[in-house]
Amino acid sequence: EDPKKEILLAMLMVDKEKKGYVMASDLRSKLTSLGEKLTHKEVDDLFREADIEPNGKVKYDEFIHKITL
């Protein structure tokens, strides 16, 4: 499956209130437990690539855009 789609799906599952962003810690939890599970190192690399703080907010569109360039 398309990794971009899988990450967006994980974000939507976490963002039940439809705020347009999720906490990095919640996204990490989903990405390491769903679908093609990522390792913590892979998530760290994704966050670093997208300039996301480990305890920060992750906005869908910015995150998807940064990791798919």
Results as ranks from 00 to 15, higher is better:
14 V>H: 14
21 Y>A: 08
15 D>Q: 09
44 D>A: 04
57 K>H: 12
3 P>N: 12
67 I>C: 10
44 D>Q: 03
42 E>A: 06
63 F>H: 04
66 K>D: 00
22 V>L: 06
31 L>S: 05
42 E>N: 02
45 D>S: 07
44 D>N: 03
68 T>A: 14
48 R>D: 10
68 T>W: 09
37 K>L: 09
57 K>F: 09
56 G>V: 02
11 M>F: 08
5 K>G: 06
60 Y>I: 15
35 G>E: 08
69 L>V: 11
68 T>L: 10
53 E>A: 12
53 E>V: 04
69 L>W: 13
14 V>S: 15
60 Y>R: 02
61 D>V: 06
29 S>A: 15
49 E>G: 03
8 L>A: 11
18 K>M: 05
24 A>I: 04
41 K>M: 06
38 L>K: 03
1 E>S: 10
56 G>L: 01
36 E>W: 15
4 K>S: 12
41 K>C: 03
23 M>N: 15
21 Y>T: 11
65 H>M: 00
21 Y>M: 11
67 I>M: 14
38 L>A: 03
34 L>T: 11
20 G>A: 07
49 E>D: 01
26 D>V: 02
51 D>K: 11
3 P>Q: 10
4 K>H: 11
17 E>A: 05
2 D>Y: 07
32 T>W: 03
56 G>F: 00
55 N>P: 01
58 V>W: 07
21 Y>N: 05
11 M>G: 12
13 M>V: 06
62 E>G: 00
7 I>N: 14
11 M>K: 13
29 S>C: 10
4 K>P: 04
60 Y>M: 12
10 A>L: 03
25 S>Q: 15
13 M>Q: 15
69 L>M: 13
5 K>R: 12
20 G>T: 07
39 T>W: 02
57 K>S: 11
47 F>C: 01
4 K>F: 13
4 K>Q: 09
58 V>L: 07
22 V>H: 03
61 D>A: 09
43 V>I: 11
59 K>M: 10
26 D>L: 01
39 T>M: 01
14 V>L: 15
28 R>W: 02
16 K>W: 09
55 N>R: 04
3 P>G: 00
6 E>Y: 02
24 A>R: 02
26 D>N: 03
32 T>S: 06
64 I>P: 02
20 G>R: 04
35 G>H: 09
47 F>L: 10
64 I>T: 04
29 S>T: 12
40 H>G: 09
61 D>M: 07
38 L>W: 14
5 K>S: 07
27 L>A: 03
45 D>P: 00
35 G>S: 12
59 K>T: 09
52 I>K: 03
3 P>I: 15
56 G>D: 13
35 G>K: 10
23 M>A: 14
14 V>I: 13
8 L>D: 10
9 L>S: 15
51 D>R: 11
2 D>M: 08
47 F>G: 02
16 K>L: 09
35 G>D: 12
11 M>T: 12
4 K>D: 07
35 G>T: 09
46 L>H: 00
5 K>T: 11
9 L>W: 05
22 V>G: 02
67 I>T: 13
54 P>W: 02
56 G>C: 05
44 D>T: 03
8 L>N: 07
22 V>C: 10
46 L>F: 04
37 K>D: 09
53 E>K: 12
12 L>F: 05
52 I>P: 01
60 Y>C: 07
18 K>Q: 10
9 L>I: 06
21 Y>H: 08
13 M>W: 01
53 E>R: 09
23 M>D: 15
28 R>Y: 06
24 A>P: 06
32 T>E: 11
20 G>Y: 00
27 L>Y: 02
57 K>V: 13
69 L>N: 13
62 E>Y: 06
63 F>M: 06
1 E>V: 11
58 V>C: 13
10 A>D: 12
62 E>Q: 05
16 K>S: 08
8 L>S: 07
12 L>I: 03
58 V>T: 01
2 D>K: 02
46 L>A: 08
11 M>I: 05
63 F>D: 11
64 I>N: 06
46 L>T: 04
37 K>S: 11
27 L>N: 00
5 K>H: 08
11 M>H: 08
33 S>C: 09
20 G>P: 08
63 F>I: 05
60 Y>V: 13
50 A>C: 11
33 S>G: 10
60 Y>G: 04
8 L>K: 02
38 L>P: 04
59 K>I: 05
11 M>C: 13
16 K>P: 09
69 L>K: 13
58 V>H: 01
43 V>W: 04
28 R>A: 04
15 D>T: 06
15 D>P: 06
18 K>S: 10
50 A>G: 04
18 K>G: 07
51 D>F: 03
38 L>D: 01
5 K>I: 10
43 V>H: 00
14 V>A: 15
9 L>R: 15
54 P>F: 01
65 H>W: 00
3 P>S: 14
42 E>M: 04
45 D>K: 07
40 H>E: 15
53 E>H: 10
46 L>R: 04
52 I>M: 04
20 G>Q: 06
28 R>V: 02
59 K>V: 06
25 S>L: 00
63 F>S: 03
44 D>R: 00
56 G>H: 05
53 E>N: 11
24 A>T: 08
1 E>R: 12
65 H>V: 00
52 I>D: 03
32 T>Q: 11
24 A>L: 01
1 E>L: 12
61 D>R: 08
40 H>F: 05
16 K>A: 15
47 F>P: 03
17 E>H: 10
52 I>F: 03
59 K>R: 08
57 K>E: 12
53 E>L: 12
25 S>G: 07
28 R>E: 02
64 I>V: 08
22 V>M: 10
